[in-house]
Amino acid sequence: MGLSLGKVVKADSHIHYLCQIYGRHEVKADSVPQPHHYALGNFVQIGLGGENGLIIGLIYDTMLLNPDFGNLGPRLSPEHELKIFAPDYLNERAVLVRIAAVGHVAPSGEIFQGVPRLAASSDAEVREMSPAQIREFHRGSDGGLHLAYLPVLLRQTDPLIYDMVQMMLGQLAGLLSEAQRAELDVISDELLWRTQIGPLGGTQ
């Protein structure tokens, strides 16, 4: 099992989830997720509970929650004494990541890529995926590399999508055979051209 990263706190749509990353008061000190665990383009799995399997998602945005932002008024306790006098207040600060659902893994191990039929519930646990799980998720029924969710991602209007996809492809490339990497390069190169050269006037 991969490291537990946080829990689902909100869903903006059937595939867009908001996950609150566990802070140091919520899990053991050695299990606190570090920034590289919830980096942009990382694969995560969201538990559906019971016999429903898992939703596979991709982190496509990061937000910071800080209730102190915009509060310019006087405080009873100075900043360095908040830990003693108002620990709850500190707990309200959090890292939130946006996750786009890109597939589903049934308890039987059957893999589906694309928009999952099932949705996660609030408080559903979000975990990181191991390299073996990522490889398995991308293995098609013919044994070849499978990225059927890519069009779903690219349909998103989020300005970070293309960059996130490049990071995801980069992460994936490191897990694949040379032949599969060549296939991935075709997609990667095409997206790179569209994002880096296309906007400057390159022929597309």
């Binding site: 390069d185 990667s188 190169d189 790179l192 051209w193 880096q196 050269i197 400057l200």
Partner: peptide
């Protein structure tokens, strides 16, 4: 120039 603006692909 392409490399400078972040294009690292092989098929220009």
């Amino acid at each position: 120039i392409a490399a400078m603006v972040g294009y690292s692909g092989r098929t220009s």
